[in-house]
Amino acid sequence: MATGGRRGAAAAPLLVAVAALLLGAAGHLYPGEVCPGMDIRNNLTRLHELENCSVIEGHLQILLMFKTRPEDFRDLSFPKLIMITDYLLLFRVYGLESLKDLFPNLTVIRGSRLFFNYALVIFEMVHLKELGLYNLMNITRGSVRIEKNNELCYLATIDWSRILDSVEDNYIVLNKDDNEECGDICPGTAKGKTNCPATVINGQFVERCWTHSHCQKVCPTICKSHGCTAEGLCCHSECLGNCSQPDDPTKCVACRNFYLDGRCVETCPPPYYHFQDWRCVNFSFCQDLHHKCKNSRRQGCHQYVIHNNKCIPECPSGYTMNSSNLLCTPCLGPCPKVCHLLEGEKTIDSVTSAQELRGCTVINGSLIINIRGGNNLAAELEANLGLIEEISGYLKIRRSYALVSLSFFRKLRLIRGETLEIGNYSFYALDNQNLRQLWDWSKHNLTITQGKLFFHYNPKLCLSEIHKMEEVSGTKGRQERNDIALKTNGDQASCENELLKFSYIRTSFDKI
């Protein structure tokens, strides 16, 4: 039985969820670079991206490699990797027998973001014989899940209580170790020597080791999670996991709180800001991140802002960003909400898709409305799209047979046209069989910064309504002859009103 693990408890099935942008060198404390989270699957090609990484700022997932063999891993080693800020997950990587050479110096898994409450997941690794993470000293947050690894031993010899604050939620089941077939031998045991430290858990006094050649490092209890030197002297209180010299914040392997210019500090002093819960960055760093993602459509890219001495992905609820200094300031009234469309555009074809934009005031991208039916549609669209004030790209209304009016965009005031449909149009209306009105132009103002209007096959939309939009939106004169079809717009509506004058002759039985 794995020490510190839980057996036999019912657990939810383990679901495996399925960018080499360097964020800056980590400095003297770390020998390499800070790398983003990685999802490495199918083959070993991307694994080489770990070569210079000291910190993975995010998670590391290595999974679904069915053609790899043990010899493929023999020359692979990433000794610079010290810390993973989120979680480490391995799933069905064939041929991998140990992690001792792959990650010989991995010391800390912070667990800032977890995989279903777990910071370390080893699942269905069919050839893994031992973990071998002999320098792993601290899992700051989260638990361990090690399950269905039929060859995995050296679990009962690990004292997880020396690595985690609590072992109650560890789930370590259905491994070879369960069948008591392992016969784990710690260093020196074969020669009758006791080389590794022994600890007591559940009444068992057991030597602690990761492999037959690597003991588990056990520091004096007084050192807590700070770690200790090879001689057993406690590291500085700002260290986490390990250090090369005692009581020196510049000799830590990793930091308990924050890293700044080669030393570990309790908090980031001005003019620095907390970033990702582990390091200090200056304003320029946060500003660069903001600008890199301002026009990016890459998933996970955030326009970072500053709030409460932190550089964070977005302002919290009730705050909006001051564009001059990136500071989050309290909103006066309802907060603006910028919604970034991942692929640059979004099609609204149902109430469900409209709900995804609920509360958005600025759309960074283009909207395509293609709704053919739905219950209580006008009210639903207004509830979900009615706060949109600005669209950076274009607005396209296409084959939306259920629409009679666009009044559900009740606050839309600006279409920038930074991206144009077919390279020309910022407003595009095609084949809307029941569209009769755009907006009530006596109450609604709309500016279209650039781009043209396109109207074709809107049989109940009168040309007068379209011409009014040209005047109000500032697009009059931009359109070419064929942009607004004269014969297919309003051709099934009563669009022309003329005053009919009647004269009559009164007659009676005795007068003409």
Rank of each mutant, 00 (worst) to 15 (best):
H28C: 12
H28A: 06
L29N: 12
L29C: 15
Y30N: 07
E33F: 01
E33C: 14
P36C: 15
P36E: 14
P36H: 03
G37T: 06
M38H: 12
I40K: 00
R41F: 15
N42G: 04
L44I: 10
L47M: 07
H48N: 15
H48K: 07
E49M: 08
E49K: 05
L50G: 02
L50N: 01
N52S: 08
C53F: 00
C53E: 00
E57H: 14
H59L: 01
H59D: 02
H59G: 08
I62F: 06
I62R: 00
L64P: 04
M65P: 01
M65G: 05
T68S: 10
T68K: 13
T68Q: 12
R69W: 07
D72T: 11
R74D: 06
L76F: 10
S77Y: 14
F78Q: 02
F78I: 11
P79D: 04
K80S: 09
K80N: 13
L81Y: 00
I84F: 00
I84T: 00
I84Y: 00
D86V: 00
Y87D: 00
L89F: 08
L90E: 00
L90K: 00
R92W: 10
Y94V: 11
L96I: 05
E97P: 05
E97G: 11
S98M: 02
L99Q: 00
L99A: 03
K100T: 07
K100G: 10
D101P: 12
D101E: 11
D101K: 06
P104A: 01
N105V: 04
N105Y: 05
N105E: 04
L106F: 02
T107L: 05
V108L: 09
V108P: 00
R110Y: 03
S112M: 15
L114V: 08
Y118I: 01
L120D: 00
L120V: 08
V121S: 09
I122C: 06
F123Y: 07
F123N: 07
M125P: 01
L128E: 01
K129E: 14
E130M: 14
E130L: 04
E130Y: 13
L131P: 01
G132R: 01
G132M: 01
L133Y: 02
Y134S: 11
N135T: 10
L136D: 01
M137K: 10
M137S: 09
T140V: 11
T140W: 03
R141S: 06
R141D: 15
G142P: 00
G142I: 02
V144W: 01
R145G: 03
I146M: 08
K148G: 04
K148V: 06
K148L: 14
N149P: 01
N149R: 01
N149Y: 01
N150Q: 12
C153E: 02
Y154L: 05
Y154S: 10
L155N: 13
A156T: 06
A156E: 03
A156G: 11
D159T: 12
W160E: 01
W160Y: 06
W160K: 02
S161G: 09
R162M: 08
R162H: 11
I163E: 01
I163W: 01
L164R: 06
L164H: 09
D165K: 15
V167L: 04
E168R: 11
E168L: 09
D169E: 14
D169C: 05
N170Y: 04
Y171T: 09
N175L: 11
D177T: 13
D177H: 15
N179H: 12
E180V: 09
E181S: 08
C182R: 08
G183V: 09
G183D: 15
I185N: 13
C186Q: 01
P187F: 11
T189A: 12
K193I: 05
C196W: 01
A198W: 10
T199Y: 05
V200R: 11
N202C: 06
N202L: 06
G203D: 10
Q204D: 14
E207L: 11
E207K: 13
C209R: 08
H212K: 15
H212D: 15
S213M: 13
H214K: 01
C215P: 13
C215R: 15
Q216M: 15
V218R: 10
C219T: 02
I222Q: 09
I222T: 07
I222S: 11
C223Y: 02
H226T: 13
T229G: 03
L233E: 13
L233K: 09
C234N: 02
C234I: 03
C235F: 00
C239P: 00
C239K: 00
L240Q: 05
G241P: 01
C243E: 00
C243L: 00
C243S: 00
C243Y: 00
Q245N: 12
Q245M: 08
P246F: 11
P246A: 14
D248T: 02
D248I: 03
P249F: 02
P249W: 07
P249T: 11
T250Q: 03
K251G: 15
C252K: 01
C252A: 00
V253Q: 05
C255Y: 01
C255M: 01
R256K: 09
R256H: 05
N257W: 03
F258V: 06
F258Q: 12
Y259L: 05
L260S: 03
D261G: 12
D261W: 03
D261F: 05
R263E: 14
C264E: 00
C264P: 01
C264M: 01
T267S: 04
P271L: 06
P271S: 10
Y273R: 04
Y273A: 05
Y273K: 06
F275R: 01
F275E: 00
Q276G: 08
W278T: 13
R279C: 02
C280E: 00
C280G: 01
V281W: 00
N282W: 02
F283K: 11
F283S: 05
S284A: 12
C286D: 01
D288E: 11
L289F: 08
L289P: 04
H290G: 07
H290D: 02
K292P: 05
K294G: 13
S296Y: 14
R297S: 07
R298L: 10
R298M: 04
R298W: 12
Q299S: 03
G300Y: 05
G300R: 10
H302F: 11
H302R: 06
H302G: 13
H302V: 06
Y304D: 02
Y304P: 03
I306M: 03
H307I: 07
H307A: 03
N308C: 02
N309M: 09
N309A: 10
N309K: 06
N309D: 07
N309H: 12
E314I: 03
S317M: 10
S317R: 00
Y319H: 09
Y319S: 06
T320Y: 08
M321Y: 14
N322W: 06
N322Y: 06
S323H: 15
S324E: 05
S324A: 15
S324I: 01
S324R: 12
C328P: 02
C328Y: 04
T329Y: 12
P330W: 05
C335M: 03
P336K: 07
